[in-house]
Design a protein around this nucleic acid. Structure first.
Length: 1077
RNA sequence: GCUCGAGUGGUGGAAUUGGUAGACACGUUGGACUUAAAAUCCAAUGGACAUUAGUCCGUAUGGGUUCAAGUCCCAUCUCGAGUACCA
């Protein structure tokens, strides 16, 4: 009987499906007493093109591992599902009008058929689809949890928003340490309790982990949607390659920045590939340095009143207000008097002034060096909250922090008040405002090398500080840079451009004026959008200074900076820098920060590149938000009313007024009484309100799917506690490296959030991750000659000018010969072209490229399965090389693994007419040895994910057993188990022929016995000066001396030495002999 | 530019803590079987020289450490991936 892979594979695929062979057991059902093991493939998007041979690579590897773990006695969870929301189905809907759900359903069918035919051991009873309302109900649920959470820096975790509200209403926000928006205004408990509900909601949005805010987003006009940073590659959209522009829009954002440090720290606890960790580290972009504030000297050097004393901070009406201030100083309230006694005694180590003019306000107390204002309010202020807020905003705008206390607080408990002020003095680096430019620098040690400041052209201060004389030039420059697209700016980093604002800042230490420039090499989106430029230590600053003839002071000892900047931190010794002179880098940084803190003009700071993630998409085919709007403020729909299902729309394009596609829906309003979605016509702005029109991005559905697989049918919770506590986390996660900074970062973020809120027991979702390499295509080219239009065979080009044209790889055989007639029929344009052949053949050119439809180099697994079978394809994909490595697809070698399977089959069918033969004879010593060295190697290989070498090992094993004419059950039974993870169909068939009725899938993995491999002798390689000359068989129990004697006595040794006396003989028993001399 | 990874026959790739370089396949060549083809089986196959015996050279390049280096160290080159003015 010959190896009929077609019927064998069909038979077992049906058997597995009918018997639910791979169903994983949840707690409470049989099988869950075993140890768990969770093997997961990255969520596939079911594209219309179906699978190509590159896709299954990772699935085969994970399947081998899953099957191996079952043999090892584990309860294995190996699920599969579909990330089925997404752009392609929607683009297709826009073009054809076909509902994306239909397209998606069809694509999934193709995927499922293709996956089934490869014999994967997935537990299909757990399948999830992100576009299924039963699934996205829980995506919406998580969104609500995020909305109802804030990040408490003190406990360093996310907490329920109610704990924040409690603090606000008892203590205000002065002592709240939270990750929140930058423009937070200070308020007291009384303020909070008096704020309108809308005002409270606005403030809370500044703290929530998902929040609605006007942000600058990447808008892609061609796709009609915003894109996340990771969806943009080289300045154009990842999908489609369309241009992307910056635009301000109100969008949902995720406060992932709160988790920057923990996302970084977590990388040390997981076994993920280093390059992947590196790119996440890079993306998070932590840099340690200092934030430094440079006061702005309002007028250019030498002009006007730059000599005006610094404490004169009043505005235009100063002359009117000074008298009033004096009067108030003489008649302080009781509370003011008490506080002033404490402040003027300098108990707090900072100088305060009382009843001082700031712009057009008289403030109660101010510390000018720390930009801190303290107001003491009586009962009257309760009635003028709005005015006070306006005043606070103006003062904030000028760069001051405002802290308010009530009279009763000051009189009642002065110590608490003083402690609060001390806290503020310590923590307050004045926010950026008209009074100063705050910059972030990693090199505070070079602060004496600052010779100019540079602001991003978009920086909000630019308009305020530019002098009349420079106005025209600055505006022209801003206009010119705004016109340059993101892409131009990136492509062209060599051109140096900028403009002088006419304004000057003051150096914190030398008090020298520093000119303020703008330049587009400074990015608005990073740090504060401003830099202190140190041309001697930074090449970009250096180039800028050279270009605009700005001085380049040298602050490095013994370094020549006449040609380029000096950026080496290790060799740095600071010079020309007052108190930093002679210090090396690290000490100088510390000292500089210490001195800046003393001045209140800077402090050590850690900066992250990671931005909050925009979470709104102006698309149809995505999760709807469980959100409706009351007076423009977002409201969450109670979780018991979820899911909010995607409405039907006439067309999938934005509305005429530019609203997202959901704006076309006519039944898209929320009735807060009936708690259901109703027609838009019922909106009354009392009980029926409009729903959110955006949908969630692609990564929403994939950020917790791995946990949902643990309990996918659960309708009451995202997963049961029993399920999550049993399965815990993913033990092995396999997928492509393209998800490094998208899916894998967002998933880690959500997992940490779920951990903080107590829903999951682990704060990292995947212990081990492997990136499988990409299988690239081998494109084929024909060459059309310029002018003549003749199509020339590759080796006849000889320098002629030709245009390469992709030919479909199915028209080319293994020897690179083209089926010319087939090509002519395929591309009708070439019907009448003349093909210039060599030796009667047309030879194509070959090139390795990404496998893609447009390059006509896609190889479909269906054809391979048809010709060689799934087991051959599985073995071959593994045999190609290491899993992590990228490699071009080349079918040439598949006959090798296919004939291996035939040999394996024959090993069990050695009888007459190839009939099945098995004997109970005791195996030979050699057969035992062959089997056990195979067990050892295969086990090691699987544990190390070195699947390619296992396949070789099987080949060697079968070759040896065939030569030994082995038919022993004692050998051939374990061999079938060994092979089963790799080639499960043939293994099942052989197993059943061996007389078993149960599936092979959970049979124990054969146990390795070292005793079978023990040898009594070794074929020693005998080397002379390290070069192997011959081998010599010697017993292994010889001592070093005995080996040496035996080797020296050998005739070939004497022949090699030709009478010379060896200087030294190295003997490593069991390994090698090396004779030196 | 920076970061990371990789360079081994005609090809995919093996090679344990440094210890016989090229396992296992593909391809190629020759042979067996066959009317023929397919399938199958056998043999050879890193390069150069040599009838044989054998000799020399060989893991990107140049150095180094070592009895011994594909493996460790230094420098250089090439390719791939990621990143893009990150202060």
């Amino acid at each position: 009987m010959s190896y009929d892979f077609r019927s064998i594979e069909e038979k077992w695929q049906k058997h597995w499906a009918d018997n639910k062979t791979f169903k994983a057991a949840n707690p409470g059902s049989a099988g869950s007493e075993k140890k768990k093991f969770y093997v997961l493939d990255m969520f596939p998007y079911p594209s219309g093109a179906g699978l190509h041979v590159g896709h299954p690579l990772g699935y085969i590897a994970s399947d081998i591992y899953a099957r191996y773990k079952r043999h090892k006695g584990f309860n294995v969870l190996h699920p599969q599902g579909y990330d089925s929301f997404g752009l392609p189905a929607e683009q297709y809907a826009i073009q054809t009008g076909q509902h994306p759900a239909i397209t998606t359903e069809e694509n999934i069918k193709t995927y499922r058929r293709q996956l089934d035919q490869l014999g994967f051991s997935f537990d299909w009873s757990r399948e999830v689809r992100t576009s299924d309302p039963k699934y996205y109900k829980w995506t919406q649920w998580i969104f609500i949890q995020l909305f109802n959470s804030w990040y408490n820096i003190e406990s360093d975790k996310a907490e329920d928003i109610s704990t924040l509200i409690a603090v606000f209403s008892s203590d205000g926000n002065a002592n709240v340490k939270a990750v929140c928006d930058d423009d937070i205004i200070a308020f007291s408990a009384a303020d909070w309790n008096n704020f309108s509900s809308k005002k409270q909601q606005e403030i809370l949005l500044q703290y929530r982990l998902t929040y609605l805010a006007e942000t600058e987003v990447n808008w892609c006009p061609a796709l009609g949607t915003v894109l996340a940073n990771d969806e943009i590659v080289n300045g154009v959209s990842e999908r489609g390659g369309h241009p992307v522009i910056r635009k301000k829009m109100t969008q949902w954002s995720m406060r992932i920045s709160a988790y920057a440090q923990r996302l970084l720290d977590g990388l040390n606890t997981i076994d993920w590939p280093q390059p992947l960790k590196d790119s996440q580290t890079n993306w998070i972009g932590r840099s340690q340095g200092a934030s430094v504030t440079f006061p702005i000297l309002a007028f250019p050097e030498g002009e006007g009143n730059s000599t005006r004393p610094k404490y004169m901070t009043g505005g235009n009406n100063s002359h009117l207000l000074l008298e009033r201030a004096k009067e108030m100083r003489n008649k302080p309230t009781e509370a003011e008097a008490v506080l002033w006694e404490c402040l003027k005694s300098k108990k707090l180590e900072s100088k305060f002034r009382r009843q001082h003019l700031i712009d057009d306000y008289i403030v109660d107390f101010v510390c000018l060096s720390k930009n801190l204002i303290i107001e003491v309010d009586g009962a009257i202020h309760d009635s003028q909250i709005e005015q006070d807020n306006a005043r606070t905003q103006v003062l904030n705008g000028l760069g001051f922090d405002v802290v308010r206390f009530r009279n009763e607080e000051v009189i009642g408990d002065i110590d608490t008040v003083l402690a609060a002020i001390t806290d503020h003095l310590k923590s307050s680096v004045p926010p950026m405002g008209d009074r100063g430019i705050t910059v972030f620098t990693t090199r505070p040690d070079t602060i004496f090398g600052v010779s100019f400041m540079t602001l991003a052209p978009e920086h909000e201060l630019v308009a305020k500080i530019t002098t009349a004389a420079q106005k025209a030039e600055v505006e022209a420059y801003i206009e010119a840079t705004a016109k340059r697209s993101e892409r131009d700016r990136m492509a062209d980093v060599k051109t140096i451009s900028g403009a002088f604002t006419g304004a000057y800042a003051e150096h914190p230490f030398t008090k020298e004026p520093i000119p303020i420039w703008i330049g587009d090499y400074v990015l608005a989106g990073y740090g504060t959008g401003a830099v202190m430029s140190v041309p001697c230590g930074d090449q970009r600053d250096y180039d800028f200074a050279k270009h605009f003839n700005i001085p380049i002071p040298n602050v490095f000892e013994g370094i020549d900076i006449s040609e380029e900047a000096f950026a080496d931190k290790e060799k740095t010794v600071i010079a020309n820098s007052d108190f930093l002179n002679g210090l090396p880098y690290k000490k100088a940084v510390k000292t500089a920060i210490y001195e800046l803190e003393k001045l209140g003009q800077g402090k050590g700071k850690i900066n992250y590149r990671l931005r909050d993630a925009v979470f709104s998409r102006q698309r149809y085919w995505g999760e709807p938000f469980p959100v409706y709007y009351v007076d423009g403020m977002p409201q969450m729909i109670a979780t018991e009313h979820l899911p909010i299902t995607l409405p039907e729309v006439e067309k999938y394009l934005p509305t005429e007024t530019g609203e997202p596609p959901l704006g076309n829906a006519t039944t898209w309003a929320w009735d807060t009484v009936a708690n259901k979605v109703v027609a838009n016509s019922e909106i009354n702005n009392k009980t029926v309100w409009p729903l959110e029109l955006n949908t969630m991005p692609g990564w929403a559905g994939s950020s917790q799917y791995f946990n949902r697989y643990m309990d996918p049918e659960n309708e009451d919770a995202i997963f049961s506690e029993e399920a999550i506590n049993y399965w815990q986390d993913v033990d092995l996660y396999i997928g492509g490296s393209e998800h490094a900074t998208g899916h894998l970062l967002y998933s880690r973020f959500w997992q940490k959030f779920m951990f903080d809120r107590g829903y999951v027991p682990r704060d990292e979702f995947a212990k081990k991750l492997i990136n499988q390499g990409m299988i690239t295509g081998t494109s084929a080219f024909v060459y059309r000659e310029d002018g003549t239009g003749n199509v020339i065979s590759k080796n006849l080009i000889n320098g002629k000018s030709v245009i390469p044209i992709h030919a479909d790889v199915s028209l080319v055989n293994a020897s690179d010969e083209l089926d010319v007639e087939g090509f002519k029929n395929w591309q009708k344009d070439y019907k009448n072209s003349e093909f210039i052949l060599e030796d009667g053949k047309y030879i194509v050119g070959r090139e390795v490229e990404k496998m893609s439809k447009s390059k006509y180099n896609v190889v479909n697994p269906d054809a391979i399965c048809e010709e060689y079978g799934a087991d051959s394809l599985r073995l071959y994909e593994m045999f190609l090389g290491p899993l992590e490595q990228s490699k071009p697809w080349n079918t040439a070698g598949i006959t090798g693994v296919h004939s291996f399977l035939k040999k394996l089959w024959k090993l069990y069918h050695s009888g007459a007419n190839s009939s099945f033969v098995i004997s109970d004879a005791t195996p030979t010593k050699d057969s035992y040895k062959t089997l056990h060295k195979t067990i050892k190697k295969v086990e090691e290989d699987i544990e190390n994910f070195s699947f390619n070498t296992s396949v070789s090992t099987f080949m060697i094993c079968v070759n040896e057993l065939t030569a030994q004419k082995c038919t022993s059950r004692e050998i051939l039974e374990p061999l079938a188990v060994l092979v089963s993870p790799y080639a499960p169909h043939i293994a099942e068939e052989l197993w059943s022929k061996l007389g078993h009725n149960e599936s092979i899938s959970t049979v124990d993995f054969p146990k390795f016995e070292a005793s079978y491999l023990v040898e009594s002798s070794k074929k020693y390689p005998i080397s002379f000066n390290g070069k192997m000359k011959f081998t010599m068989e010697l017993p292994l129990d010889l001592s070093k001396e005995e080996i040496e004697t035996a080797v020296m006595a050998h005739e070939k040794t004497q022949q090699q030495l030709q009478g010379r006396e060896p200087k030294k003989v190295i003997v490593v028993p069991g390994k090698i002999v090396n004779i030196v001399g």
